[in-house]
Design a protein around this nucleic acid. Structure first.
Lengths: 334, 334
DNA sequence: GTGAAAGCGCTAACAC
DNA sequence: GTGTTAGCGCTTTCAC
């Protein structure tokens, strides 16, 4: 590992000149430039990032907080963030929190100790108190999930509206007994999708029936999806359609239906949320809501960079899309 | 962001004393310790990592190179690496290369510029030339995939043996026309699984028939899996069993069979590889080879840390397991 | 256009 | 047990 002063000696110039050549921001004779570049190449010199950061007081690293990377839904978002970051000469560091507050707190220290300049959070919960505290001192953008504090930037889709549209679509298919498979967690999207479900029912003049609502585990896992949906399917007047707040739960719903000898979509319509790749690998292929993952990531990252440049916190909602496939059909139950 | 000298002033001691308290490695009066700690708390001081790294000449960051994070198969490995790293006071940085050599090269610079102390590579190809070059200058461990250079550490399962066992199992079920769905890439696991397939056939006295071998795309994607397997199923003497080198391809195989009105496993036995979570979400649930993901990650990380401490390169093979589920059955085709 | 030198925050060798 | 100080590699101000 060679240093700037070794390069300077090799090229017969001062370290200042080498620095100027590296950063291309000051006048250096083309000829000296050539000599310096030759020395850099010869010594295989790479500017040491610690020295530079210490001097510049910035790390050019952005943090990405993800609850887990098992969910393919995050892959696109992360791609969007990373591409944008790299285009702006930032490196990224994926921090997998596993929904563990302790671990997240440790990762927050990466900001406090200077390891990173800002963070994009994909795992904020509704009433999270640590995020506002962090955002007071560091540039932070929330993506997809966000807390109720108005002063912190966020980028997401309009979950309430999306859920409403799903239920309106189900109503348009003739369904009246529409179930809802949610999850027990503190994500705002979870809440908003349930609210959207209720609003759409109300607007359609269908009375809300709490027996038609069931909940999977915190992390929307497959097995708990099966369990939750079975609760609904065991009812005397079982729903003819079920809106699931994640594809994973919807996959569980298909399995649950199969185990109870119900055909999808003939006997039961199922709609998911997220449009992960696996939504099309199953038969029947899943009707679901598609989020613009890559754009969500890209927009978040751009917002963060602007904010680090002094811009005020901002809120953005991107467009979702309902993808019609095989798991939904007109109500034929009675 | 307060500095060590501000803490020193606040506590009425020198910066050296503060440093000693922080690093708990020298004798400081309990009383001064208390004073210093009070000052640290009061100023909410966090040691600046740039200053420390510059001085100590280490970053305490490890890189994890992953081809993509869409594949859930990597999640466990990464967990294993991260937990182990954190236990040893290292931070990790996930670098998603997208099988893009250019991007990987840029990430390699993180080592050259001091941003990281070592790397675990999950995406090495057989004849990769850049990895040996990198490994000459920096601590590197390869996980799951590795290149032919003997001097670079690696941790993986014995892919050849695993493939052999799968085929032996299929033979034991009475299958004689056994197909192989591989992929067009330069991963050593791909090659070894094909070699294992051929060896097992040979040992069973079954002549190798090149018509029974088809290839999915480089990244084992679902659609190309369907395509490859359809090639095999269109043969006059179609195979009664197919060994797929990844679960994703195996999922494609199930779809392909379905589209050609073949039942799995009654008309066609399918075996996958990796045992991803989705292997059990489908009906039929997949017979597959399970790799000890978490252990692979953990072992790699421990090996890297030992190596950074001066240990010589090492090679390790961990145990795999064949998981019998619903997609395989005795040959009933003729 | 180029060089000398200060200083970013920290640790550790040395002095007392 | 504690303080002084050099120096890690870099950028940038100020001379010239």
């Amino acid at each position: 590992m060679s240093t700037i002063s070794e390069v300077a000696k090799e090229a017969g110039v001062s370290v200042a000149t080498v620095s100027r050549v590296i950063n291309q921001n000051a006048s250096v004779t083309p000829e000296t430039q050539k000599r310096v570049n030759a020395a850099i190449a010869k010594l295989n010199y790479h500017p040491n990032v610690w020295g530079r950061s210490l001097r510049r007081q910035e790390s050019r690293v952005l943090l990405i907080f993800v609850p887990n990377i098992t969910n393919p839904y995050y892959a696109n978002i992360i791609s969007g963030i990373e591409d944008t970051a790299r285009r702006n000469h930032y490196n990224t560091m994926v921090c997998v929190t596993n929904v563990d507050k302790e671990r997240a707190k440790e990762y927050f220290d990466l900001l406090r100790c200077g390891s990173a300049d800002g963070a994009i959070l994909l795992d904020t919960t509704k009433n999270d108190k640590s995020v506002p505290r962090l955002a007071k001192n560091f540039p932070v953008v929330q993506c997809c999930e966000y807390c109720t504090d108005e002063n912190i930037s966020h980028v997401s889709i309009d979950n309430l509206e999306a859920a409403k549209q799903v239920v309106q679509y189900l109503v348009s298919l003739g369904h009246r007994r529409i179930g809802f498979a949610g999850a027990v967690n503190d994500f705002i999207s979870t809440e908003q999708r349930e609210t959207g479900y209720k609003k759409a029912l109300e607007e359609a003049g269908i009375e809300f029936d709490s027996r038609y609502v069931a909940y999977a585990d915190e992390d929307y896992n497959f097995l708990s999806g099966i369990r939750a949906v079975k609760e609904l399917l065991c009812l005397k007047d079982r729903p003819s359609a079920i809106f699931c707040i994640s594809d994973m739960i919807a996959l569980g719903a298909i399995r649950a239906a199969g185990e109870m000898d119900l055909r999808v979509p003939e006997d039961l319509t199922i709609v998911g949320f997220d449009d992960v790749a696996y939504a099309t690998m199953f038969k029947p292929m899943l009707t679901t809501v598609s989020q613009p993952g890559y754009s969500l990531g890209k927009t978040s990252c751009n917002m963060l960079i602007k904010q680090m440049g002094g811009a005020a916190p901002n809120h953005m909602f991107l467009e979702h899309k309902i993808i019609l496939r095989d798991s939904s059909a007109a109500n034929a139950v009675e």
